[in-house]
Write a protein that binds this DNA or RNA. Structure first.
Length: 577
DNA sequence: GCCGTTTTCGGCCCGACTGTTTTCAGTCG
């Protein structure tokens, strides 16, 4: 995927153009960059299939930017970018991107003081040069040093599974205050993006100053970036930024809507408001000076002439158009899951017993689970040979008698070997209620070989689920080369469900891939891959992925009742169940 | 540079906070 690379270049071009005081173009470049960054399709594929014309069909990309993308894909270089770089010293971009700095200030430092990089900036501060500059002052010097320090400590984006618990903890602390009437987590966390940059909180209270006082003095706070009457920003000890906004009752819905985003979704809504001669802000929807909506999100969307849009869909990827046409899907809900179909126990690399897992799952309200420990090739993960597997199946039978009220399916996570055969013979697979197949080795095969390998495995008559279909680990490992479309078609044809794996660093399939799979009519399964009882709670993360992928309940096999599920698992194997 | 039930030209989301000012520019989300 070249998407991220291209988005980064477009953003850098926007930076440079801003410093050159070019109007409007930077905004267009940034918008295009955001679109490309959030796209689930590979931009190179789009170009190879449809050329420049196909690129122009992507919203916010026109002839100008399409031409530059083409240059980059063909030559690995963009002429105008190279020219821009010659006009502005490289280090200036770092200065401009410091918190509190921007294009205007950065270019001023360069023009007046010949400052080209961070090092020169620090030395200029120490020599007291900055405060003499028009528009800067004593505080600016302090701010600059603090910003540089802050940048060093900043952690960047973190996994949803890391950030959501932290946000909930802060929420719980503030919720205890009597004058906090309501508190919601907003921003990308509320949209449940797979990685999160900061924690946005929204509060309804009649005593905003008091709330700000408590918020900026929380024990986790390291730095206060801004503190106002209705809006404050802090940096937590962990290097994570958190913003808090306080709104009155009549504006809470509009504020929640605004603060949830994403940016392009909001901008589009505001434009629609303007067309209807309204004005939309975080304080409400206004007709002249009169507020006509904003107490709740629902009425805000309604007054704009569309269906309510779930937070997970608000990415400007077609949801607004669908909402206007009243064609939004009814998304799978967080309570729709009836069982977890991938988990590990001490029989391979898990840490707890079958019974402990079953009890914990029952407590969560599940009707069934599958125990799916590793097959023999997974030596590192304590994979089981055939003999051990048989013992494990016996142990499952025992556990069934001990833990009533939940059905424990006999399963295994079986390796797909490099040639596409499975790690157990059909004779063994036949003894299982459910077979989860997965690639755990030879990740670097070429696209053709890998696609063939996986499709061959899917054609095995005992395979029910393809686990973590792309093998990516967020921020650690790229997905393996794969023709996912072919895999989706093959899975559908062979009655195999594609997994959305809930492990916080996996989320595999991702939202875009899940959306494509669902569109093509393949079945999905949402599983935690838990290795201990505590991991079972990860389920909500992969439900979020499904929701972000526009997935409906009926498309997910573990929303079914046990008997319906069994029908799906039976496949061509009539002896099962 | 992009886009179009307001337009193929002329717009381009909207408001809070900060610092340096003394009414505002720059930055941020």
């Amino acid at each position: 995927m070249k998407n991220l690379e291209i988005a980064e270049i477009l953003n850098k071009m926007a930076d440079l153009m801003e410093m050159l005081e070019i109007d409007w173009k930077p905004r267009a470049y940034r918008k295009a960059a955001r679109t490309i960054e959030n796209m689930s399709k590979d931009i190179r594929n789009i170009y190879e299939k449809g050329g420049e014309k196909a690129l122009c069909e992507i919203p916010s990309i026109g002839k100008g930017i399409a031409f530059k993308i083409e240059q980059y894909l063909k030559k690995g270089k963009i002429k105008e970018f190279e020219q821009l770089k010659k006009k502005i010293p490289q280090g200036l971009e770092q200065i401009m991107n410091l918190p509190g700095m921007g294009p205007k200030k950065a270019i001023k430092l360069y023009k007046k003081l010949k400052i080209k990089n961070l090092k020169q900036l620090i030395s200029a501060v120490k020599k007291g040069k900055i405060k003499k500059l028009e528009g800067f002052g004593k505080k600016s010097e302090k701010e600059i040093l603090r910003a540089i320090e802050l940048k060093k400590q900043s952690k960047g984006r973190q996994l949803l599974g890391v950030m959501l618990p932290i946000a909930r903890k802060i929420k719980n602390e503030l919720e205890k205050l009597s004058y906090v009437k309501r508190i919601e987590i907003a921003g990308s966390l509320r949209r449940r993006k797979e990685t999160i940059g900061d924690i946005d909180l929204l509060i309804r209270s009649d005593k905003p100053e008091k709330v700000m006082g408590v918020f900026t003095k929380l024990p986790e706070v390291k730095t206060i970036l801004a503190k106002g009457k209705t809006k404050s920003s802090i940096v937590l000890r962990l290097g994570i930024q958190s913003d808090l906004r306080v709104l009155p009752k009549e504006s809470f819905g509009a504020g929640l809507q605004y603060f949830t985003g994403n940016k392009d979704h909001n901008i589009k809504l505001r434009k629609i408001a303007i067309k209807k001669k309204y004005k939309l802000s975080e304080y409400g929807l206004f007709k002249g000076k009169k507020q006509i909506a904003g107490k709740t999100e629902k009425e805000t969307y309604q007054k704009l002439g569309m269906q309510y849009i779930e937070p997970e869909l608000r990415e400007n990827t077609g949801e607004i158009e669908a909402a206007i046409a009243k064609k939004l899907p009814k998304l799978i809900g967080y309570d729709d899951i009836k069982g977890d179909l991938q988990m590990h126990t001490a029989w391979s690399d898990g840490s707890e017993s079958i019974e402990e897992m079953a009890k914990a799952a029952k407590k969560m309200g599940y009707k069934y689970i599958a125990i799916t420990d590793h097959s023999k090739s997974e030596r590192i993960a304590g994979g089981m040979d055939e003999k051990k597997l048989m013992k494990c199946l016996k142990a499952i039978e025992k556990a069934r008698k001990k833990v009533r009220g939940i059905t424990i399916l006999k399963g295994a996570e079986v390796d797909i070997l490099p040639d596409g055969s499975l790690d157990y013979s059909d004779k063994i697979l036949k003894k299982l209620d459910i077979v989860v197949a997965a690639v755990h080795s030879r990740f670097k095969m070429n696209k053709n070989e890998m696609t063939k390998r996986i499709c061959k495995a899917l054609e095995n008559k005992y395979v029910n689920i393809l686990a973590h279909p792309t093998g990516r680990l967020i921020g650690e490992r790229r997905p393996y080369e794969l023709d996912l479309n072919k895999v989706i078609v093959t899975a559908k044809k062979n009655k195999v469900a594609l997994e959305i794996n809930a492990f916080p660093n996996r989320l595999d399939l991702n939202e875009g891939q899940a959306r494509i799979a669902a569109e093509k009519g393949a079945k999905l399964v949402i599983s935690t891959d838990a290795h201990q009882t505590d991991n079972l709670r990860y389920m909500e993360y992969s439900i979020a992925v499904a929701r972000r992928g526009w997935v409906k309940k009926a498309q997910v096999i573990n929303t079914k009742t046990l008997s319906e599920l069994k029908k799906f698992l039976r496949k061509h194997n009539s002896t099962r169940f």
